[in-house]
Design a protein around this nucleic acid. Structure first.
Lengths: 344, 344
DNA sequence: CTTTGTCAGGAAACCGCTATACTATATTAG
DNA sequence: CTAATATAGTATAGCGGTTTCCTGACAAAG
């Protein structure tokens, strides 16, 4: 039923080797013979057995994508899928396949990672998530495994990784405030312990200062990570009439933004006429809100594609050692802020 | 560097065959020899080469998941990832791997599907999305390819598929209205041409009738598929004072629900005190809204898992012919409706 | 004591393709 | 005209397992 290279060889009246050469290197084969072979290939609908090829060549042309999917997914992890799609697109367009491995059930994700390589089911690993610990890092380096880690692992500087830069995103937010002419801005931060929120605030503050706007203490609102908490915080900050209303609010994340929108609504303040609003990340729901929010986003699909392309480069020239990449944020203009020229 | 079965055999002082037997069937091997082999395996950290095994056994233990990922993903396709995770979980827990194939760039997705099988890169296909057409259906049947299609293909009744039942979901919505004691309900439908919306309405209407509540024409609002359109429609319907306010609104989907919430807000009506609200699907943002909406949802992860398990069953007994599965909806109680006993 | 049956283990073929080494023929150089 | 060199194509040895068939030893039966 399945047609093998031998049958093609017979049909074309040549040897297996010749067929193989025609299909691959093309070296030292006459025009005429090649045509005979291709004819036979077409006539018999020959398709090489990928497992046999992989086995003979000692190369899998496959990459394993390790991550902890867990269960609730698109909701709890809106970025994971985008990144994965980006990686996948890049890999497949270079003739690699990609198989998924869920580490959430795994006791030792590191062992699993190495196992995938040692059993030759992949040429390299893309590792995303909490699986990355020092033990895994050591294994990757010791066994010299081609890898890209999504999310900068703090503990080891010889790994290959790709990450977002939240501090930079904060700076972008400040730059946008400048472009809009908003000088008196309230930053709605999450908990002080929230690393991402803190980085965004840090970048924002630094850049604002660079633009000669110092952010005073009363223009920073720390709150818990909930919609309702954010709403309360904004209400109490804006009701405090010892200070004038800020021109804009920058929310450290979209959950907070939803709360802020609610608060402004309750206060009867219009966005962006009375107060402008900016947040981070294009979660689905920030696009569903009314008005559509302006956000500083990082294109996760692109970031994934970068990871994929780094992997390809590594596999093509293994002498490449350390590599890393930081994805740039991008401002997506919504209806909640208005740049200067439009406000006249 | 890589250790092979031969080295294990040498180390254990037995033949390759014996090692293979110990690792697999275990038939007619003495306790003692088995121990020697396992010792050697452990000592040498032997892991069988998956490509070699796959090749020798003529089985891949791999399933290809074909779908059109496109680019913008978690946003445009909140269900896809969940389904995929469900499938993946089920497959991997039966020792299958899963590789992803994007058909969005493919001219003939059907050819690609068959190609994956004929090149022996998978034992079966999970096909999700627009790739499924009559040509593909014919190929699957003619070549006898193990497959599960996500989404019931209308044109062929010998395929294996799994799907949601929107009519049934509509019935669930009606049943919930009954449980809450809402008799006078407004159904906010999408365009008349929207198949899903129509099915939900159909089921809803039928079940309501079964509960002795006929839905009159003025309690059905057709609108376009936008948030703002839905908002306008609800405003105009509720402002029409020839009829009393309905007790509840059932929205055909979450986008419409967002518009309806806005409209009720503008009218100063409280949810659920003045009017209750129910919608379908647990999109992320329905959980972000205030109040959290009651929804009739279909658990896409579970549905995916069902698809995966159907695939396993098919591979294990190929004589199984047609199989199909319809996922049941489930009501997720939010804050936007109140069941009878709680309303006293 | 021979015959038959069982069982542990090994030899070897095979899965389908790649790649190296080799042969035969044609071409060019000396 | 012979020798060296390309060139086209083939034979064959793997790649690392699985699996079928076979052998030899031992136990039970006649």
């Amino acid at each position: 039923m399945t047609v093998t290279i031998t049958e093609v060889a017979d049909a074309a009246g040549v040897s297996k080797s010749t067929v193989s050469k025609v299909l691959n290197h093309q070296t030292s084969i006459s025009e005429q013979t090649a045509r005979k072979v291709w004819d036979a290939v077409r006539r018999l609908h020959y398709i090489p057995n990928s497992r046999a090829v992989s086995f003979a060549r000692q190369v899998t042309q496959n990459i394993v994508y390790l991550t902890d999917f867990g269960q609730g997914t698109a909701y709890s992890n809106p970025h994971m899928f985008d990144i994965m799609c980006g990686v996948h697109h890049e890999l497949t367009s270079h003739n690699y396949t990609m198989t998924l491995v869920d580490t959430s059930a795994e006791q030792y994700a590191g062992e699993r990672a190495v196992w995938e390589i040692r059993r030759r089911s992949a040429d390299g690993l893309i590792i995303h998530g909490s699986a990355v610990n020092e033990e895994l890092a050591d294994l990757l380096l010791r066994e010299n495994i081609p890898h890209i880690i999504i999310g900068h692992p703090a503990f080891h500087n010889r790994l290959c990784w790709i990450d977002t830069d939240h501090t930079l995103a904060g700076e972008y937010a400040a730059a946008h405030m400048e472009a809009c002419g908003y000088q008196d801005v309230l930053f709605l931060a999450g908990r002080k312990s929230d690393a991402i929120s803190s980085q965004r605030l840090k970048g924002f503050r630094r850049k604002m200062l660079g633009q000669n706007h110092f952010i005073p203490q009363h223009r920073i609102g720390y709150t818990d990570a909930t919609r309702t908490g954010a709403c309360q915080t904004v209400l109490s900050l804006l009701k405090d009439r010892t200070h004038p209303l800020p021109q804009a609010i920058v929310c450290a994340n979209s959950v907070l933004a939803v709360g802020a929108v609610k608060a402004l609504d309750l206060l009867g303040l219009s966005i962006p006429r009375d107060i402008a609003l900016l947040t981070f990340d294009t979660y689905p729901y920030t696009r569903m809100l009314d008005p559509v929010l302006t956000v500083v986003d990082i294109n996760m699909y692109d970031m994934g594609a970068q990871a994929g392309s780094m992997m390809i480069r590594k596999l093509e020239n293994p002498e490449l050692f350390v590599q890393s990449f930081t994805a740039l944020p991008v401002l997506i203009q919504g209806e909640s802020t208005v740049v200067c020229s439009h406000r006249l």
